[in-house]
Design a protein around this nucleic acid. Structure first.
Length: 496
RNA sequence: GGUUCCGUAGCCGAGUGGUUAGGCAAAGCUCUGCAAAAGCUUCUACAGCGGUUCGAAUCCGCUCGGAACCUCCA
């Protein structure tokens, strides 16, 4: 049952075969650290975290490279070429690198909370100016780029004569030449569709580097090409990013790398879909972003409450990564409750009594049901990372687990083999692959205090002193700890 | 305007030709000092119209509605 991934380049699901097994090179477009990350940013990094985790689970030796965009020129219609970092630095009255550090730290902080694994290499654009200049020189030498007034542009028309510019995004070059909007520096370009590789810096510009074409700063697309080539070679396995980056960013990356390295750069292109709010893509220019810090604190007019990082992770994984995902309070609240149900089920599973080795008590139908559900997990995750179906199957096993815990089903009704596999499979899928963790870990001191409170409450209950027992439960609940009376007279608790 | 995609029960969302997705919410029951949780049961949907087919949410056409990209963006 091979892993299949949907390749945006071929528009089909393809069997995943690494270029040089067991090694896998994966590049994911990282954040531009000119501001705080918002909910939309959580999608790609959580999606590709699962991809990374699963590939490692399969035994591949993955090199995961995710860049930090801390410099770069962006084109905007009707506006002068700007460097977003420099622009924001002036606004916040910070040294540009101070600003970059601030938001890089914030990004790392948020994604540690999401339990995403660190990439193996996290290169910065400013740390790779030399490599970018090197690539631009190669492009000029090859005749696919030209300099004008200290800026360098990629010659899209020329590229399109020999290669397919639009192979990834489905753009038709003729349309591009006609419909591309008027961007800054137009008069310097040979053609409207050409994109900047290097921009001459005006005197006021803070972030500037020496280059063969004078002082300036790099274009946006070249940074990813340069860093991906440097760390993953000219041809690597997976390139990931948001769908909104397909054009022009990834299309241009393909063009640049193809000329420089004489090979298309990527075997499998993977793109996650957008997170929307009220049906519209969440994005700065739409003025509808909810920052991650606001999500975690609940401090935003659109939020009814705070949502934990794991709730958001679960929310994202409940949907296939190639579908749009619409934000709403109701959907997040549902995710929060669903996650709790799953994690409670998992905790219950870990504490289940071991069944006997004797097979005579096994309920064959139930045992087969569980085995089938477990077998299907592999099928689903292999089907282009269908985490929604994986979660659905895990949920289908929860009632059985809870029933055994409550004594409604005898623990011996499942075979010991199934029991062992259940524990293993839940751990692998929930923790190792989906990266879901219990956010409310407690320490020994806390546990000790709770033990004492449980004892006192048990005591009160046995004396039918319900006033005391209710008071303990009520006040603990207000403090975020729920106490439950179990069927066997025991008292369990759990921290929210 | 061009290109592409989507429209699934109260809500969120899998599913792409024939069999109960799943989560949340709601109702009933069981359990229970109360509560919560849990278990069982119920609610069985595929925008509209037409076509292909023994059979369509799934394929095709049209209509309506929405989105993404064609600046920046995850």
């Amino acid at each position: 049952m091979p892993l299949k991934v949907y390749n945006s380049l071929t528009k089909t699901k393809e069997e995943f075969i690494p270029i040089t097994p067991p090694y896998v090179g994966m590049y994911v477009c990282g954040p531009t650290v000119s501001g705080e990350s918002h909910l939309g940013h959580a999608r790609p990094y959580i999606t590709f975290d699962v991809v990374y985790r699963y590939l490692m689970h399969l035994g591949y030796k993955v090199r995961y490279v995710r860049n930090i965009t801390d410099a770069g020129h962006f084109e905007e219609e009707g506006r002068e070429a700007i460097d977003k970092i420099a622009d924001k630095a002036i606004l916040e009255k910070l040294e540009p690198m101070e600003l970059v550090q601030k938001y890089t730290n914030l990004f790392h902080w948020a994604f540690r909370k999401f339990n995403t694994l660190e990439p193996n290499i996290e290169p910065t654009a400013t740390g790779h100016i030399i490599e970018q200049i090197g690539m631009i020189e190669k492009l000029i030498e090859a005749g696919y780029a030209y300099e004008n007034n200290g800026s360098v542009y990629f010659d899209v028309k020329k590229y399109a004569e020999n290669y397919d510019y639009g192979a990834l995004s489905g753009r038709v070059i003729e349309d591009l030449l006609e419909t591309t909007r008027n961007l800054d520096g137009q008069e310097e370009k040979r053609d409207k569709a050409d994109f900047a590789l290097w921009k001459a810096a005006p005197p006021s510009h803070i972030m500037r580097w020496k280059s063969p074409w004078g002082e300036g700063f790099p274009g946006w697309h070249i940074e990813c090409s340069a860093m991906a080539t440097k760390y993953l070679g000219p041809y690597f396995d997976i390139h990931g990013g948001g769908m909104d980056l397909m054009f022009p960013h990834h299309e241009s990356e393909i063009a640049q790398s193809t000329i420089c390295n004489h090979t298309p750069p990527v075997k499998y292109w993977m793109h996650n879909n957008m997170i929307t709010i009220n049906g519209k893509k969440m994005g700065k220019s739409y003025n509808n972003v909810i920052k991650l810090t606001e999500l975690f604190s609940g401090d935003h007019p659109a939020l009814q409450q705070a949502f934990s990082p794991m709730t958001i992770r679960f929310f994202i994984l409940q949907t296939h990564y190639r579908s749009t995902l619409d934000f709403s309070n109701d959907a997040l609240i549902a995710a929060e409750k669903g996650l709790k149900r799953l994690m409670d089920g998992y905790e219950n599973l870990k504490k289940l009594p071991l069944p006997t080795e004797d097979k005579s008590t096994t309920d064959a139908d139930l045992d087969n049901f569980l085995q089938t559900k477990m077998n299907e997990l592999e099928e689903f995750i292999n089907d282009d990372f269908n985490t929604a179906k994986v979660l659905a199957n895990l949920f289908e096993m929860v009632p059985t687990i809870n029933s055994i815990k409550d004594g409604l089903i005898k623990s011996d009704a499942i075979s010991s083999g199934t029991h062992h596999r259940l524990v293993e499979v839940f751990s692998i899928y929930i923790e190792q692959i989906l990266g879901l963790i219990n956010e409310n870990e407690t320490d020994d001191q806390f546990d000790g205090i709770m033990e004492l409170l449980v004892e006192i409450r048990k005591d009160a209950k046995s004396k039918k002193d319900f006033a005391t027992s209710d008071k303990i439960r009520k006040q603990l609940s207000a403090l975020g700890v729920d106490m439950k009376d179990e069927k066997d007279g025991e008292i369990s608790w759990n921290k929210r």
